[in-house]
């Protein structure tokens, strides 16, 4: 059987909030080491990959690999019933389960709620993501990244990200004119979560749809920092670490000049 007990249900709530607007139905692959989720948006522009290792759970048992086809809207309804400090237990049968049980326990043990979510059949390509050497890595405050994406959305549909030397520039333009926001590599680091790190091998200049970046920033509550990895002619990777026990990575295909 598959059984996973998470001490802080709030983490699962945050994970779901960060994927449900991008991917409606997702395949949750469970094996002895971790739960992984991979899914694409309906227009096949973005892909999300989530990894949550067994050590994130207070108790984790997975006798045989099992894949759970989750409708994220249905799962979200259940997790809305959970407080952040509720314990969440996921349970499913080993072979081709058609449902998954979720049990919510209050911290003081005085309230228990249990739910059964019907699993859905998902016919989607599982994609292999190759190891890539990126030309630039930018690590910054996740809140600052969210702010930049939100602010630039007022000016245009797309953002041009340019990395050169020790700067990263985010630009957007439209009918109202042009907006540029430049962040410079932090000279001194007082607080790591507020500093900007630009690690550049080669200059890059790429353009991406802001609509998707704004969806990615739903993961902001998961981590104080975010890392952007860029290479010319390759998808952007936006990564939020889930403590030391996993990550959410978003991949976004660039827009190219016709």
């Amino acid at each position: 059987m598959f059984e996973a007990k998470l001490q802080q249900g709030g983490l699962l709530k945050k994970i779901l909030e960060s994927v449900k607007d991008l991917v409606v139905d997702g395949l949750w692959d469970c094996d002895g080491a971790a739960i992984t989720l991979q899914g694409m948006d309906s227009s096949h522009v973005a892909l999300v990959e989530m990894l949550l290792r067994a050590e994130a759970f207070e108790h984790y048992r997975c006798d045989r690999n099992v894949t759970l086809g989750m409708n994220h809207n249905h799962l979200s309804k259940i997790l809305k019933c959970a407080n952040n400090d509720d314990i969440v237990i996921l349970k499913a049968a080993d072979q081709n389960p058609d449902s998954c049980s979720l049990i919510l326990e209050s911290k003081n043990g005085e309230k228990t709620s249990d739910f059964v979510v019907s699993l859905v059949r998902i016919d989607t390509d599982q994609l292999g993501i190759p190891e890539t050497e990126y030309s630039a890595h930018v690590k910054m405050s996740s809140g600052e990244f969210q702010r930049i994406c939100r602010d630039l959305s007022q000016f245009g549909d797309a953002v041009q990200i340019t990395c050169s030397k020790q700067d990263v520039k985010f630009s957007s333009s439209g009918e109202t004119g042009k907006a540029n926001i430049t962040l410079t590599h932090s000279a001194t680091v007082d607080k790591e979560e507020e500093s900007v790190t630009v690690d550049l091998k080669e200059p890059v200049d790429l353009t991406f749809a802001l609509r998707f970046l704004n969806l990615f920033t739903k993961a902001t509550p998961i981590s104080d920092t975010v890392t952007l990895s860029l290479s010319q002619e390759a998808p952007l990777v936006v990564e939020y670490k889930i403590g030391d026990s996993g990550h959410i990575r978003y991949f976004l295909a660039p827009k190219i000049q016709e």
Binding site: H44, P254, Q257, E258
Partner: peptide, 14 residues
């Protein structure tokens, strides 16, 4: 005009 690329064109099917 910039054309949006398809994410699947960068990855291989498993």
């Amino acid at each position: 005009f910039r054309q949006q690329q398809d994410i699947r064109s960068f990855f291989t099917r498993k």
